[in-house]
């Protein structure tokens, strides 16, 4: 029993890293841009669907991943336009795109499920070769974090950070906040689609409902990551490592409760409850555990 559990951990780590990459996408919108973007439930599947259908039709896996990335970028771009150009609140804009993507994903695959067996196709990673998968994922994670660390240190990246921090100040400093929001949403969903493409390869199929509740898992990873790392360092690269670690921890816990005999049907509910609780903590701290401070004056 214990050995079984131990044997399942590498697989959990691989899945955790894939969802950790997805959670980095969530981090970009939720933490950096200060927007809760629900597009991700659809765009993770779009990434998986595009990758699966292209590879099964004989396209090289690298090219398939690139096109999956572009599809995700487009999905985020649509949400961005709904939000800025059409003035729809971000949450609703994400839900609308997510719904559109449900149909689009079905059309991409032509059916609800496409098998992508690693025995038949030349894939980057697969469940049956966990060592290779872990190495590929570790390299992907490092590359992604280095790239994002660089990007958010550029003038353009700093303007996205400023937008999420203070819209008013950003406009006063000449930042086109509509543009930076669209850019952030686009980038985020590109990363999420990439994780979907990795997930489809790893699990050996793409499924139209593979993204259901993805935002909750992403948020869980972000929250766990913050809890683990935020005391150690404020550095963005370290925080992103924390987010991926959050994904891995999430899957370790997930694997453990399954081994303890928990009904798998209840897992989504438990994830949601845990996320709700952790989202409530900062609010509770502010409302119930801080002493009243007098006046509106600033010293």
């Amino acid at each position: 029993m214990f050995l079984n559990w131990l044997g399942a951990l590498p697989g959990a780590a691989a899945q955790g890293m894939i969802w950790g990459i997805m959670a980095i996408g969530v981090y970009l919108t939720y933490k950096i841009l200060d927007v809760a973007d629900l597009t991700v439930d659809g765009s993770i599947c779009t990434g998986g669907a595009v990758c699966a259908i292209l590879v099964t039709n004989g396209v090289n896996v690298w090219l398939a991943m690139l096109i999956a990335l572009i599809a995700g970028l487009l999905a985020g771009f649509v949400t961005g336009l709904l939000h800025t150009f059409m003035g729809i609140p971000a949450i609703l804009a994400g839900i609308l795109t997510q719904l559109m993507l449900w149909s689009i994903n079905l059309k991409i695959m032509g059916k609800a499920n496409v098998a992508l067996p690693s025995r038949k196709y030349d894939l980057l990673l697969a469940q049956i070769n966990i060592e290779k998968s872990l190495i590929v994922l570790a390299v992907a994670v490092i590359l992604l974090i280095v790239l994002l660390y660089w990007f958010f240190g550029t003038e353009l990246g700093a303007s996205i950070r400023a937008t999420g921090n203070n819209l008013n100040m950003s406009r006063a400093q000449g930042i086109n906040t509509d543009f930076t929001k669209v850019l952030g949403l686009t980038l985020s969903n590109g990363i999420v689609a990439l994780s979907g493409a990795l997930l489809a390869q790893y699990q050996g199929f793409a499924d139209v409902s593979m993204g259901r509740g993805a935002i909750v898992i992403g948020l869980a990873a972000v929250i766990i990551g913050e809890a683990v790392i935020s005391k150690i360092s404020q550095n963005l690269a370290v925080r992103l490592v924390g987010v991926v670690a959050g994904g891995v921890i999430y899957y370790f816990v997930y694997q453990t409760v399954i081994f303890l005999g928990l009904d798998a049907d209840l897992l989504k509910m438990l994830s949601a409850i845990v996320v709700a609780f952790f989202l409530a903590v900062p609010y509770w701290k502010k409302t119930y555990f801080t002493k009243a401070k007098g006046g509106k004056k600033h010293a």
Binding site: E155, L156, A158, S159, A162, N166, S170, Q173, G174, I175
Partner: peptide, 26 residues
């Protein structure tokens, strides 16, 4: 000001007011 950004980052953001923000270091 942007509260979660450093003093120097805030100043650098203001310094680039009215210029195109590209991929140069901020």
């Amino acid at each position: 000001t942007a509260a979660d950004m450093q003093i120097i980052e805030n100043l650098a953001l203001a310094k680039r007011r009215g210029t195109r923000r590209g991929l140069a270091w901020h």
